[in-house]
Computed example of a mutant assay.
Amino acid sequence: MTLSLPIDPEANRLLERNPLALLIGMVLDQQIPMEKAFSSPYVLTQRLGHEPDARELAEHDPEALVEIFARPPALHRFPKAMAARVQEVCRALVDRYDGDAARLWSDATDGRELLRRVADLPGFGKQKAQIFVALLGKRYDVRPEGWREAAGGYGEADAYRSVADITDPESLRRVREYKQQMKAAAKAAKA
């Protein structure tokens, strides 16, 4: 099982085989549709002409990276901020995991450690970290002991709350409905 979004099949294949691409997709998954967020790593590889590694992105000229992110169609609605965020995450990967994104999860001894490692990345709060832990567990068979508990409600087997739960058009519809309900509830709570 892997991520199955209604995006270019090559973009899905990149997410399957390239841990850094998957992580970048998760970094970008805010304030834009998830299809856009998770297809942007593929567009980035096209613009660079190859699949970058974390070290390359960490050391990339920041202004040049912003230009790559901002080129129409932009990789994110906030290309400058998200180019910087991706670069920060890549620097953390270089500093902590020798640039190997997969070591973020492959070396984790249990779900709590996995959640802590993800939450320690720039731009990953508790909720985003829990969603990524759920995504790794549900779609990529990264299941250290306690991963479901660490992922909170996102780790529940029959949940339809996040990108971790999308396997087909029906599950995508259910996740969208859940997100709409959560937005409506948050709006009502503010009123």
Rank of each mutant, 00 (worst) to 15 (best):
R148L: 14
Y42Q: 03
R117G: 03
L114R: 07
V86Y: 08
E10G: 14
P79E: 04
R55P: 00
A188L: 10
D8S: 12
C90T: 00
S162I: 05
M34W: 08
Q127F: 14
A134H: 00
L172H: 15
A119H: 12
A191Q: 08
Q127C: 10
Q31N: 15
Q130M: 06
K126T: 15
K187D: 06
D61K: 12
A102S: 15
L114E: 09
G99P: 11
M182Y: 10
V66N: 08
H60L: 14
R96F: 11
S162D: 09
G155Y: 07
C90E: 01
L14T: 05
P33R: 01
A150C: 09
D95M: 02
E149I: 10
P52D: 05
A164H: 02
R71F: 05
R139C: 13
K36M: 07
A119K: 15
L57Q: 10
Q181T: 00
G49Q: 11
E170D: 15
P9W: 05
T45L: 03
P169L: 08
D110E: 13
I68F: 13
D29N: 14
P79K: 01
R96I: 11
R91W: 08
A74D: 00
E170I: 11
A81C: 06
D168P: 05
L20P: 06
A101F: 06
E177P: 09
W105P: 07
A84K: 08
Q87W: 01
G99V: 01
E177L: 06
L65P: 01
G25A: 03
S4W: 10
P72S: 04
